[in-house]
Design a protein around this nucleic acid. Structure first.
Ligand SMILES: NC(=O)c1ccc[n+]([C@@H]2O[C@H](COP(=O)([O-])OP(=O)(O)OC[C@H]3O[C@@H](n4cnc5c(N)ncnc54)[C@H](O)[C@@H]3O)[C@@H](O)[C@H]2O)c1
Ligand SMILES: NC(=O)c1ccc[n+]([C@@H]2O[C@H](COP(=O)([O-])OP(=O)(O)OC[C@H]3O[C@@H](n4cnc5c(N)ncnc54)[C@H](O)[C@@H]3O)[C@@H](O)[C@H]2O)c1
Lengths: 217, 217
DNA sequence: GCTGTATTGATAAAATATTATCGATACAAA
DNA sequence: TTTGTATCGATAATATTTTATCAATACAGC
């Protein structure tokens, strides 16, 4: 499947697996491994080897029979797919507990994410620096977003404040929002929203645990 | 589809949507709304109404034509499905930035999650209390897990320490792990692992943003 | 008490995602 | 060089998930 401009559409399940491949591949690279087979990857990650091959095909990497895939090329290809080989400057909205943890998480650089500023409406927080990143008043967001050409924002405010903040972000021309608030936010069609709600993944876990316990009876 | 003991298997995509329904329903309840139609839910969450009805069916709630579903019953049914109407006591391993944020997140109670202790191997942290929860030495985990009958653990240690901690947790009889480390952990067949890796959801977002930017050219 | 209609729930169809099969191929070992 | 084999990549089969269709039904308004 292609978009209008002939860009391959990568299925979402595949996109969600690519980081797992990447983590494994980076580990292998560190250990000096040069090439890896789909069978090996599948075993390590508990997947089907056919699926690994199919996923890899989306990255345009071709392997060699009997040898597998070149680790370096595959790493590069995945990073390119995800645009993780260059930095996307981003704002963080809501410098609370979760926001603070994220601002301090150095490894986001490996995911192409670079926080350039944080925003909050708490006067106590505005003016502070958190892990070297300035906390600014949310009022200044629209102007700064445009000035600094920021397109991506991470939303870590309480659910009640989420929509209000989104509206401010939209004024600044933000087109992609990584939403951690347990709240469906409303945005225009063309704006990309990815909900990173803990509850989604927790729901899967607690259901499985509950079923597991029931089957034990 | 049924498990051996006639428990309905709820598809994972459905499980991931249930919390969204729940958040919306709780809001509606707060506003005094008594019943809600699948069409309404679908519009609010950007889904298909048929899908909402199908998802709702897994909770065993039946609606009324022309009226929709009873908000309260649906809330209860979803919470029951996910086992969120009672507390599951849990350990948190790795009292770092993310771990601290999670220990302080009161709303986990709404998700049936109750942290009873945290564990770390940093002598600076052991003995401290974080948001009222004691940080204990990881060495004590196996004994305490068995004593306190803890089955669920949240893993927020660095990737390099993840497997080592998992092995300790397994000794204590932990059967469900919510893993935040960007690392595939190895566990026996019967142990439930849910990877809550930020990178999964970030991958979807950055890919979409990248494609979006390319189509603009 | 009728009539019109929004909505459900069941079933069917379509789309998507995963898994299986198999010939082709590169490499290692004899 | 030849042979054996692990692995790829293409294609086909299966499974799962999403979306469409429609008769049955509860309610509101007349
Ligand atoms: N802490 C966690 O572990 C955790 C887990 C899952 C989800 N979440 C979600 O992440 C979000 C943040 O959680 P948290 O624990 O960091 O909360 P928090 O209260 O610690 O932080 C929220 C921050 O947002 C700021 N804020 C509030 N209203 C604002 C507004 N209108 N404009 C700008 N800033 C505003 C506050 O000043 C505060 O600094 C919440 O939606 C929460 O539900 C948190
Ligand atoms: N901070 C974030 O925003 C963020 C985002 C995404 C993923 N993560 C992941 O979550 C995990 C935790 O991240 P963090 O930022 O909180 O890191 P952190 O370094 O702040 O905290 C890690 C904690 O684990 C403890 N620890 C280390 N080795 C241990 C061991 N063997 N046994 C017991 N405890 C041990 C450390 O003492 C520390 O308290 C990491 O795997 C990280 O990749 C964090």
């Amino acid at each position: 499947m292609l978009t209008k401009k002939n860009i391959v559409v990568i299925p979402e399940p595949t996109l969600r697996r690519l980081p797992h491949y990447l983590h494994l591949l980076l580990n292998l690279k560190e250990q000096g491994v040069k090439s890896v087979s789909s069978t090996f990857i599948a075993n390590e990650l508990g997947l089907d080897s056919t699926q690994v091959r199919k996923d890899v095909q989306y990255t345009n990497i071709i392997g060699k029979p009997k040898t597998g895939f070149d680790v370096n090329s595959l790493i590069n290809a995945i990073q390119t797919c995800l645009n993780w080989n260059r930095y996307e400057n981003a704002f963080l909205i809501g410098a609370g507990s979760l926001g603070t943890a994220m601002l301090g998480y150095k490894q986001f650089k490996d995911y192409g994410l670079n926080f350039v500023a944080a925003f909050d409406n708490d006067p106590e927080k505005v003016g502070q620096k958190i892990h070297g990143i300035e906390v600014l008043s949310i009022d200044r967001l629209p102007v700064l977003a445009q000035l600094m050409k920021i397109h991506l924002a991470v939303l870590t405010v309480p659910a009640k404040a989420a929509q209000e903040c989104v509206d401010i972000m939209l004024k600044g021309g933000i087109v992609a929002i990584w939403n951690f608030a347990p709240m469906q936010i409303k945005v225009p069609q063309n704006v990309i929203v990815e909900n990173a709600q803990f509850s989604q993944s927790l729901a899967v876990l607690t259901r499985k645990l509950s079923v597991y316990k029931q089957t034990l009876l």
